[in-house]
Design a protein around this nucleic acid. Structure first.
Lengths: 138, 138
DNA sequence: GTAAACTATAGAGTTAACTCTATAGCAAGC
DNA sequence: GCTTGCTATAGAGTTAACTCTATAGTTTAC
């Protein structure tokens, strides 16, 4: 498929797709050139783009992805090293999830407070006091 | 306290702290000037820095934080609007958490596969087949 | 056969969030 | 009082990840 089609299918811009190639995130299995020098993308390219988006969504940089994918493609690292990378990534995500849970708790408390402000001023007052006394203990 | 002390207590650089001020994330309750024009930070500044770091950790931009905090400070928005903002933020974080869960599942599968490669080649082979048949169904 | 639409490259521009540099005014220790 | 270290400002530089522009070749539709 040509670049515009891939762009449509991935939701990325053609600029971004060419940028990813320039950054070394694609290889010959993903892009070839036609006689007219137009890029011709395989289905593997589509899969790779999806994978990149997914990993990017959880905070991986393109640099990191490039390393991992190159690795995945050429098997330069030992299986042990791959296992270690995956494990540390899992830890990282789990830490991040805990952060999110903490923020969720905070936001839910904030929400409860603002709803109380509307319906139950006394409760709101009580919550405010409770929150202030927490300020310096966390 | 002076800027270096705040930097030490927050883990931010003095450059970053001044940058935050320039970007409008602090006001007179956080910073005042001494006679010699040195900045003098209150404990509120410390709290604010912590808050910024927390929200930034879950993907809020400084711009967004500026809006929220300005809001929080001056009460320009109605309580209803604040409730809506908090609710949408909660939704956002919950979506993000699901993404993380999905990635965790993927990574755990990858881990299991690589461990099987070491100890149980047959299992690894079976997993590979299973994963390949999943490729085009998701 | 020509205009519109798509593709190519090289390289400049953008944005967020820092990060650093140069220059200069205070401050604290000895 | 001098050196060392902290503070100030203005503005330049950096990094990642795009995003866009200029210029030019190719394809497609009419």
């Amino acid at each position: 498929m040509k670049i515009q089609e891939l762009a449509d299918k991935t939701g990325l811009s053609i600029h971004t797709i060419r940028y990813y190639e320039k950054e070394g995130l694609l290889d010959t299995r993903h892009v070839q050139r036609d006689n007219n020098n137009y890029r011709n993308y395989s289905d593997a390219a589509l899969e790779r783009m999806k994978l990149i988006k997914k990993f990017q969504g959880i905070g991986c940089s393109l640099m990191e992805l490039k390393d991992i994918l190159k690795d995945h493609d050429t098997n330069t690292r030992s299986n042990q090293q791959v296992i270690e990378w995956i494990s540390s990534k899992i830890d990282e995500i789990e830490r991040k999830k805990e952060e999110y849970d903490h923020m969720l708790a905070t936001l839910n408390l904030m929400l409860e407070y603002h709803i109380a402000l509307e319906n139950d001023p006394e409760k709101a007052q009580a919550m405010l006091k409770r929150m202030q006394s927490m300020q310096h203990t966390e």
